[in-house]
């Protein structure tokens, strides 16, 4: 995967050569010109080795973008919008329910989530009614109970889905 000459010619990547040598995937080289994206849900591989310009990931610690030659990074995702940017094309937007994103040293980024759907498939009226139902369930549940936590998860997810389709929920 990583030839010795490639690491010598590459400008900025020289210090990362040792990281690249122990990366798992062999699809990209150290002087990659694009991000290699693998986006998977349990029942489908949405992108497998796709060459993309940038991936914007909703991390629990904040949203961040992955471009070529990004430093290796692991992040847990929050429910939110994941954007896949192609050169000279409209970004593809997916709503992810959470999961993990791993960026390897050779610009390969693996995104694994339990559910990922296109924004066009979100039904704003269902989101609104699910949010209202979750809010009243959270109010009715005993403080600190699992039922309350489940209702709060539903609220959090529906709020993020609402935000993604331009719906403000309170």
């Amino acid at each position: 995967m990583l030839s010795r000459t490639a690491s010598l010619v590459a400008r900025k990547v020289v210090p990362r050569a040792s990281f690249a040598a122990r990366a798992f995937s062999s699809e990209a080289t150290a002087d990659a010109t694009s991000v290699t994206l693998n986006l998977s849900v349990p029942y489908e591989s949405i992108y497998n080795g796709a060459a993309v310009e940038q991936v914007i990931i909703p991390g629990t610690e904040g949203e961040y973008g992955i471009t070529v030659n990004h430093v290796p990074y692991v992040a847990q995702m929050k429910p939110g919008v994941l954007q896949v940017l192609f050169e000279g094309a409209e970004p593809e937007k997916y709503f992810v329910a959470g999961g993990y994103a791993v960026t390897h040293a050779n610009s390969v980024t693996d995104v694994v989530c339990v559910e990922a759907v296109k924004l066009d498939d979100i039904d704003p009226s269902a989101v609104q009614s699910n949010y209202d139902a979750a809010k009243s369930a959270a109010g009715a549940a005993a403080s600190g109970s699992v039922e309350e936590a489940e209702a709060m998860i539903d609220m959090e997810v529906n709020k993020a889905m609402g935000l993604a389709v331009g719906l403000t929920l309170a």
């Binding site: 429910p79 339990v114 759907v117 600190g144 699992v146 489940e150 997810v157």
Partner: peptide
């Protein structure tokens, strides 16, 4: 908050995924 309530990450992730599925067309 879900960890404090005693849920595991798998339970949390599956609940969130179910919540996403419930809001689809």
């Amino acid at each position: 908050f879900w960890r404090i309530a005693g849920m595991t990450y798998l339970q949390y992730a599956n609940r969130a995924a179910g919540s996403v599925r419930a809001g689809l067309k």
